[in-house]
Amino acid sequence: MKLIGIEEHFLTKEVSSAWRAIGLEARDPSVAYHGGQMERRLLDLADERLALMDESELDVQVLSLTTPALHDLAPESVELAQRVNDAIAAAVVRHPTRFQALATLPVALPDEAAEELERCVRTLGFKGTMLCGRVGDRNLEDPAFAPIFQSAEALGAPVLLHPRTPDKAVRTAYYSGFAPMVDASFATYGLGWHYDAGIQFIRLVLSGTFDRLPGLQVILGHWGELVLFYAERLAAMDRVSELAHPVAHYLRNNLYVTASGMFLPHYMERAASIVGTDCLLFSTDFPYQYRHGRDARLFLDNCGLDEPATAAFAFANWMRLTGA
């Protein structure tokens, strides 16, 4: 059975240099996570990556620029995004049966980002895009970012909402008071990243984004970034939200959920009960969640779904979503 991982990351030396040039590591501790072996694996788009894919029996990686992508870069990000996307398009051409791609966008410049998304989908054959939460002090439902989401809906291109580090004021209030490394991990991969990504999706819902753009499809990693586990509480807002539909409607009609290497059948069962098995997507969150051996394939073989639903999870839902 074909196995497609839809949240598999890369980095380029140029992007890493651009982060360092603006001192981003001082504001976003996750930048420091991209060193050593992790950096080597992120930078590699050839032999080592393919070998690790073979080891885990993953047939296809859908490549996306790792967090925080270009969200903190402004004027220079347009040409930088173009160069990144052209480089990834070349990697896909070299390995067309192994790689697909999500567009890297200059999100601080939404009109240009919308144009780049269209170029990536129509000209380069990319499958969608990935956004990493807040841009400066603006959340993604800010009207300024409407051109990106309008373009995504018009193109039929899904938007993966990836975690990024919460704002410093939030980290200080909720994720500080321990040793520096504990504070950083608590605010990022321990918990903060995932609340942040889930909140971005709920803000899109509450702002009426999906009422205005009913065809827009969003993907959340890590089995829904905590959102699905509080679906019943979110539904309580129906009496005050003044949306066109109950919150449950948007969870079922505008949201896909992916594993991100969290190979936990009971999490998948919860996700399926909310969004349906036709909206489950496979991913390993390479290289962050990478484990040696056949973990990816073993999870697929033992996930508890029947054969048609397993095939949908493994590859068919992604192919239907992206028209592949």
Rank of each mutant, 00 (worst) to 15 (best):
E115Y: 00
M319W: 04
V31C: 14
E8R: 07
L105C: 07
D44L: 11
A18E: 08
T129R: 01
L3W: 05
A26V: 02
H34V: 12
L213K: 12
A244Q: 14
A91V: 05
R98V: 10
D238S: 10
V257C: 11
L50M: 10
D59V: 11
F315T: 12
R252H: 14
R164K: 05
R239I: 15
R164E: 04
A316T: 14
P158A: 09
R27P: 01
M130I: 14
N254I: 13
S207K: 06
N254T: 12
R239S: 15
D111C: 07
Q82W: 03
F149V: 07
A236W: 13
L213R: 13
D211Y: 14
I274E: 00
T172Q: 13
L124V: 10
P163C: 08
P265V: 12
T97S: 13
V205S: 12
T12L: 10
G35I: 09
H222A: 13
G177W: 05
K13F: 02
G136H: 02
V78E: 00
L117I: 08
L52C: 05
N254A: 11
N253I: 06
H245C: 09
A108S: 15
D28I: 13
Y267P: 01
A101I: 13
Y256E: 04
G221F: 14
T172N: 07
A169W: 07
I219K: 08
G261F: 11
T322N: 05
L70C: 05
P246M: 09
I6R: 03
L65F: 07
V205Y: 08
T209R: 15
L11H: 03
G128D: 00
R134A: 14
L264D: 09
G156C: 09
S30V: 12
D306R: 04
A154S: 12
V247E: 00
F286T: 05
G133H: 03
N254M: 10
G128Q: 04
T322S: 12
A114E: 04
E7G: 08
G35V: 11
R252G: 14
M130W: 00
R40Y: 02
A26C: 01
A187K: 07
L63M: 11
L11T: 03
L58Y: 00
A89G: 15
G261C: 10
V275W: 08
P110T: 10
A309G: 02
E269Q: 15
A248G: 15
K127N: 08
A271Q: 05
E76W: 03
D285V: 11
T67Q: 07
C132V: 15
I6V: 15
L140P: 00
F10A: 08
L65W: 08
T277P: 01
L216P: 01
M53F: 06
Q82P: 01
Y267K: 13
A81W: 08
L131Q: 01
R20H: 11
A169G: 05
A316P: 03
P166Q: 02
A101D: 00
A231W: 10
A184K: 03
V121N: 04
Y175A: 12
I219N: 09
S56P: 01
